[in-house]
């Protein structure tokens, strides 16, 4: 029996029309917190068209939907306004979003409009019963440190959540909420910002976020050609290929391959870091890896402090040997 305390999740859908994995994690995390609070979970979605509502309503108590086909996930102003109205009407204790392009834009603007607390890129949100507050943990200084911030209940707290930190919704969860369409007159389509064009990424191969094995290259590769050599290793291991920020900034590889604080958060079983120095902003993105193997010609590189196995060698010498031996084993 809910005591009226609410948690609002702003969810996002993938191309198949189901929740993104991060949204599934938010829903799971929100459900767990709501149960601790004795409260309920509301979700806000932008979803016009046919959806699997049975799937989308599972785990929530109410799912608010912006069904107006003129509103897309790019309409940050509109989404923020709808969220603002929902928060004013329902007074949730907590509003959770993913640390995604949408979350990065909506969270601060919503916090400004409602004049409430805000924590970005949280790796943990806990309810402390005895202190009647939430505590949020988030990485700072590029991941070199962690900071814990408090927020009192009784006033909304907005948190964006890092991928792969909250547990997804329990498979046993039977609760299914009601779907509530947001009336068109409540959706003020704000005119100031127009999306002129969106060219989708051509992300070839295995998605980094889902990959079980990742081979990644850093500034130590020296040039774009280094990624061709890396690609050979990736092929033989059936691995996804990633990069740190340096190769992206140098334009050796496209942005969608970036792993780290301003790129993707990954958690493969095996992560092979080649020519990567081990800067905090990158390491923060691979902490969930099962095993980390580093190949770097600098024995003092920081990467060796955060890896399970290391090879001090020039990748140009080491990688062809690795590839040959591994090909031999696969045969």
């Amino acid at each position: 029996m809910s005591n009226g305390r609410k948690i609002l999740v702003i969810g996002e859908l993938d191309q198949k029309g189901g929740y993104t994995s991060l949204s599934g994690e938010l829903l799971g995390g929100a459900r767990k917190l709501a149960d601790e609070l004795g409260g309920s979970v509301d979700v806000l979605l932008v979803a016009s068209g046919n959806q699997d509502w049975k799937n989308l309503c599972r785990g929530a108590d109410r799912v608010f939907v912006i069904e107006n086909p003129n509103v897309t996930i790019f309409d940050i102003d509109t989404i923020t306004t709808v969220a603002e109205e929902l928060c004013k009407k329902n007074s949730p204790e907590l509003c959770l979003m993913g640390q995604t392009d949408l979350g990065r834009d909506v969270a601060p603007r919503l916090a400004a409009r409602l004049d409430v607390g805000l924590c970005m890129d949280c790796t943990e949100v806990k309810y402390e019963n005895d202190k009647n507050c939430f505590v949020q943990t988030r990485p700072v200084y590029g991941g070199k440190a962690m900071a814990i911030f408090a927020s009192s209940l009784g006033r909304l707290q907005i948190d964006t959540i890092r991928p792969k930190t909250m547990p997804p919704l329990d498979r046993q969860e039977k609760r299914s909420g009601e779907r509530v369409t947001i009336a068109d007159d409540k959706i003020k389509i704000q005119g100031n910002v127009k999306l002129i064009n969106c060219e989708k990424n051509r992300e070839d191969g295995i998605r980094l976020e889902d990959a079980k094995i990742i081979v990644a290259g850093g500034g130590g590769l020296g040039d774009a050609k280094g990624f061709e050599i890396l690609g050979e290793l990736a092929r033989v291991l059936n691995a996804a290929v990633g990069a740190t920020r340096v190769p992206v900034d140098e334009k050796w590889v496209p942005h969608h391959m970036e792993i780290g604080q301003t790129g993707k958060i990954v958690s493969p079983d095996l992560y092979i870091a080649v020519g990567i120095s081990g800067a905090a902003q990158h390491i923060t993105g691979i902490l969930g890896s099962g095993k980390i193997v580093a190949i770097n010609k600098d024995p003092d590189a920081n990467i060796f402090r955060v890896s399970d196995f290391g090879l001090v060698a020039d990748y140009k010498d080491a990688l062809p040997i690795l590839v040959e031996k591994l090909k031999g084993k696969a045969a």
Partner: peptide, 11 residues
């Protein structure tokens, strides 16, 4: 401070 250190075995 983050403690992301792992015990690295050098090959």
């Amino acid at each position: 401070a983050s403690s992301n250190e792992r015990k690295c075995e050098l090959i």
